[in-house]
Amino acid sequence: MGAYVIRRLGYGAIVVFGVLFLLFILFFTVTSPDDIARKALGERVPPAVVEQWKINHGYDKPLFPAPGQWADNMLVEHYRRMLTFDFGRSDADDTPILERIRKGMGPSLALTIPLFVLSLLVAIPLALLVAFFRETYIDRAGVILAVLAMSVSVLLYIIGAQYLVGKVLHWFPISGFDSNPQVVVRFLALPIMIGVANGLGGDIRFYRTVFLEESNTDYVRTARAKGCGEVRIMSRHVFRNSLIPLLTRIVVAIPFLFTGSLLLESFFGIPGLGAITVDAIQGNDFSVLRTMVYIGSLLFVVGQILTDLSYALVDPRVRLE
């Protein structure tokens, strides 16, 4: 077990190194520091100002290692900063990035945790229900509804719901955030509902496929032959076996709760990491964007390791060696 975790972490570290290299290629060679400076300052700025900006933002070193500069170059600097979480300042407004991330995490989690839990609580029982009534009209209608729901762009969900609730029904405020937990519920209700609705179609379809695949197995036939009822078969045999494929989808998503939701946060004015990212896109803030991709990848690697470990919990055939 211990050896397995160490090996897994080792591979994770290699992947993170790969991700950082890709990021370097994208953000330092495809777009050079000069491009970044021009985007931040404008096209008609004299070269001296550009050079000064590069010094201020730590873009002033040569890109690649060369004789005499093995340590003092952007590539090494990039790895050093990212690995020590020394993210520096925003290219657009000079605010310290780590500070912004720390502040953004709370609002993001306030949105994503309830969204995540609620999605599971709604989608899994519905999918079980649809799978339970397989080959009937309930099943067929469920699948068609799921495909219909999947085919609606998330933009339409958001715009539609904002219009409906904000202009017609007036249940909730359509945008904003508050640090007071009692107030914030009113702000979060709508984005959470939209988030659940948006994911529901795809989730139900995926879970249903998994449940159906498990219900066609030989051991389910054995259970029926010994006199098990359908409800018991679903809950004890099918569900427990389905956990294995379900976990891949669920556990992997957990780390991403930290990074929030781009669309929901910026549409509903929630000052989380998603909104910070959207601001970075609109403000050509490359350093923030780079950091967000890196953090996302880091969390994904963690999620993968968690998923592998969680297999051992639900599947006795998996032994961590």
Binding site: Y219, R221, T222, A223, H237, R240, N241, I244, D315, P316
Partner: peptide, 8 residues
């Protein structure tokens, strides 16, 4: 091989 529930 497949007629027994693998996780029980």
């Amino acid at each position: 091989m497949t007629s027994l529930n693998p996780v029980m």
